[in-house]
Design a protein around this nucleic acid. Structure first.
Lengths: 345, 345
DNA sequence: CTGAAAGCGCTTACAG
DNA sequence: CTGAAAGCGCTTACAG
């Protein structure tokens, strides 16, 4: 069943059928109705290969997800898919390893499938800097800011990681915590974890303390298992911590279990704060105190901007989305610990 | 950059370039080497729209995932993607709501993108029965068996849900539990939850007990929140339960929190068993006793079979994959409860 | 408003 | 082993 058959069946020519199918304005009402009814009757669907070949138009919207087990991204992805589909666009998602080079991957996908745009769920600026210049389609980066890169076809929407992390530490400080450890991510300048660590440092310095990274920070990937191991390493090294800030909720859940396995309790012995605000964080025991990223906003703005960029070639934007410190049950208020342990210990 | 440019640059004709690109045997070594070197040099990638238009061949392999937050499926999906990509095939994933009609969706995707095959991650036999007949590409259903449907283009690989559930209840029984509640899924004959319930019933009857569904079973979707709510409803109704079998780990994690919120403990007051064996189940406190589905095997067999079906038109198969009862920390061995509460209570 | 025709980038009999 | 040519199913100037 091709457009030719529809032409024959409807009594109109190939071109007219095509015009109707593509919603061109200059078709008579009679022709439109007749052709549409035939199309419907036989359940015709145009061959998208032929269509895209002609239109030289990219077929769908590609979503590149860094880490298939990342629950924050699953959440955003689900929302994006719904929104894009609702706009009548096609979407497809591809998963990459957490450390994979998403930009090289995008370039490869672009060659193979010519998507009309990309949405990156997570991104390492290092890779963007290296080869994003080769990608000439509208792109949106979510959860990390691409502002400093100044590419004309890259917008981004993200949480202000530094500010949020600063608030976390401010909060822990206000609860009397002075010996705070941090786990998650790594020290590369281009990663979100770097900005989160910056917020940690900023808060501590504001309170007259310093952050000894070598001692108090333990890097790890964003997984339960790595969060678990990192916590054990950190606790093995500095037993005196009263609080741990995990740079991701999944890491925090792993950390929680590690703390228990060390014979300690949360928040009795060690207070714990996560980051992301995934659903799971509110079902753990205790409920996690965490930074909730606004996944609905991220999805909404990301899709809207991408579609605009595809259709109108607008200027890129780099916006921050509001976050919220959710006070769960995993942080203990210390009594009168302040005077004693002021400054870094 | 098209195949024509490559022809010009290499000094060979269009046809020869195409043959080299498609690994046709009858091309001279000289031509092959020359053309390949040019292709490499300019980084040429054939236009897949044109290619597929000609080949009338479906472009990629589509994976339909029921429930984007389903961690078991994320796990399997990740493995599938790696394997398919390793075979040089393209893949794309689409997420559906847990209750969506995946078969209608597949038919629609088929019309739009002509994938060469489908892998269904989760499936409701009701939908397959209704309209799978319209889908004429090789398909593989994972985690549910499509055997009874007898479609020539549908294979399936799944865990023996009935058998596994029977083992769960056998185990709980052997630990002295007699008042067992079940949560998750629904009673539709075509769902995996139905088969799991069948195993529950079978085990209980084997031990001379009956299963009062209206009283002891509470349906819910496979999410933390619904698991939580279902548990509260169930506990509100029958306070005397000594164990709960959640038909999914995610449900179990929600249940665990609900049990705590009722002022009870796991496994002190109530023992809990999950199903799936996702990573999270081993990081909860206590670790979950659960049925581990072999995601690696499911992915491996599914991909292998689909590729075979696409390339050789082989007969469908319906196989069971081994499972394992993982004994975590969430089940308590009761002392001498047997004599007193024999039979259903 | 509509039709006839060119062409998108490729593959594959058909000849040689 | 290789080239010339037809054609996959569509879109879109171009004429009318």
């Amino acid at each position: 069943m091709t457009i030719k058959d529809i032409a024959k069946l409807s009594g109109y020519s190939l071109g007219t059928v095509s015009r109707v199918l593509n919603n061109h304005p200059d078709v008579s009402k009679a022709a439109r109705e007749r052709i549409l009814s035939v199309v419907k009757e036989v359940g015709f669907e145009p061959n998208s290969n032929a269509r895209h070949l002609k239109m030289r138009q990219r077929s769908a919207i590609a979503i590149l997800v860094k880490g298939s087990q990342n629950m924050l991204f699953s959440d955003i992805l689900e929302r994006i898919q719904k929104k894009i589909t609702a706009c009548g666009e096609e979407v497809f998602a591809d998963y990459l390893d957490e450390d994979a080079d998403e930009v090289s991957h995008a370039i490869q996908i672009y060659r193979q499938r010519r998507p009309r745009g990309f949405i990156f769920l997570g991104g390492d600026l290092e890779y963007f800097r290296k080869s994003f210049g080769e990608l000439h389609v509208p792109c949106v980066l979510l959860t990390n800011s691409g502002e400093e890169l100044k590419y004309v076809n890259l917008s981004s929407f993200s949480t202000d990681d530094t500010e949020a992390s600063e608030q976390v530490i401010d909060y822990l400080y206000s609860c009397g915590h002075r010996r705070i450890g941090v786990i998650g991510g790594n020290l590369s300048v281009d990663q979100i974890s770097f900005r989160r660590l910056l917020g940690v440092k900023r808060s501590l310095e504001k309170h007259g303390m310093t952050f000894d990274r070598a001692e108090r920070y333990e890097p790890c990937r964003y997984s339960l298992g790595e969060g678990y191991e990192a916590t054990r390493r950190l606790l093995g090294r500095c037993r005196d911590l009263s609080a741990i800030f995990a740079l991701g909720d999944v890491i925090a859940i792993g950390a929680m279990r590690a703390i228990y396995d060390e014979g300690l309790s949360v928040p009795g012995d060690i207070s714990l704060v996560g980051y992301d605000g995934i659903a799971l964080s509110q079902y753990s025991m205790p409920r996690l105190t965490t930074i909730r990223q606004d996944t609905e906003q991220l999805a909404e703005l990301g899709v809207k901007k991408l579609l605009e960029s595809i259709n109108y070639n607008v200027d890129p934007v780099h916006e921050r989305v509001a976050f919220e410190l959710i006070k769960g049950e995993s942080v203990k208020r210390m009594e009168e610990d302040d005077g004693i342990t002021g400054g870094k210990l």
